[in-house]
């Protein structure tokens, strides 16, 4: 795929003897929605940390829209169009949700004036936080914090959105709302890469699924086929991964 929006080339990373990425190659097209599953310790979060710039790979490259961003810092990647949520939400405790998304709109998306205000407001509204615009980050519930993670990423006007287990800890109706939101964002032309244990949420959203284990991709392709793959089934200890419910 020559026109891949996000391309990971031969990413490798070791912590002592623990291999979290072993020559990983992955491409995400401009309008793709890719789901990533894998057991704990498979290297999923490290993959996002290297893609986002928190973790420097031992070898390999991260290419965003044809530009090598391997050596750039986190804020430069955000400005280049990479949106990301943290698995454990990290809101600004002392800032309102609106101030947070406004900051993402001005700094991340480079918007100014009314454009920035409406971008910040829309991001909150889409994530169901419009009524909490003046609430400080430290006063939000877990679900609201997770929504703020997404809203913050959206306000930076990403071209690729990396979602790290945003459905974990949510109830079924909440997961359904989240799926609707991600589908809508994807329909707007944003590429989505979603790491998730709640497999049915992924199946309702993504058009491609990859399975990560031991720092390598063991399967990548049509979601249904990947879930039927014997290697993937074995990694899940003989369980049918699609039967895993919300934790």
């Amino acid at each position: 795929m020559a026109d891949a929006l996000l391309r990971l080339e031969g990413l490798s990373k070791k912590f002592g003897q623990v291999v979290v990425a072993d020559g990983l190659d992955l491409e995400v097209g401009p309008h793709e929605a890719l789901g990533i599953v894998g057991p704990n310790g498979a290297g999923k979060s490290s993959l996002f940390a290297m893609t986002g710039g928190d973790l420097a790979p031992d070898a390999g490259r991260v290419v965003l829209d044809g530009r090598d961003v391997t050596r750039t810092s986190v804020h430069q990647r955000t400005r280049a169009g990479l949106g990301r949520t943290y698995q454990v939400p990290r809101p600004f405790g002392g800032m309102t949700t609106f101030a947070t998304t406004l900051l993402a709109a001005t700094e991340g998306a480079g918007a100014r004036g009314d454009e920035a205000l409406s971008l910040a407001h829309d991001a909150l509204k889409r994530c169901g936080l419009a009524h909490l615009a003046n609430t400080r980050g430290d006063a939000l519930s877990l679900l609201q914090r997770k929504r703020l993670e997404v809203a913050r990423a959206l306000a930076s006007r990403p071209r690729v959105l990396l979602l790290d287990e945003v459905a974990g800890g949510l109830t079924e109706p909440e997961v359904a709302e989240l799926v609707e939101l991600v589908r809508a964002v994807h329909a707007d032309g944003v590429a989505v890469v979603w790491i998730e244990h709640v497999v049915h949420a992924l199946l309702a959203t993504v058009d491609r699924l990859a399975c990560l284990a031991g720092g390598r991709l063991v399967a990548d392709g049509d979601p249904e086929q990947v879930l039927r793959d014997p290697v993937v089934r074995e990694i899940y200890l003989g369980q049918d991964p699609s039967e895993e419910g919300a934790a």
Binding site: V74, G93, L103, E107, G108
Partner: peptide
């Protein structure tokens, strides 16, 4: 000021501030 807001955000959580595109 917007620089001041960035400063408060960076003081609050430098990693999240980088994630919104702020240059620490």
């Amino acid at each position: 000021t917007s620089s001041g807001r960035i400063m408060r955000a960076t003081s609050d959580d430098p990693q999240t501030a980088a994630l919104v595109g702020a240059d620490a």
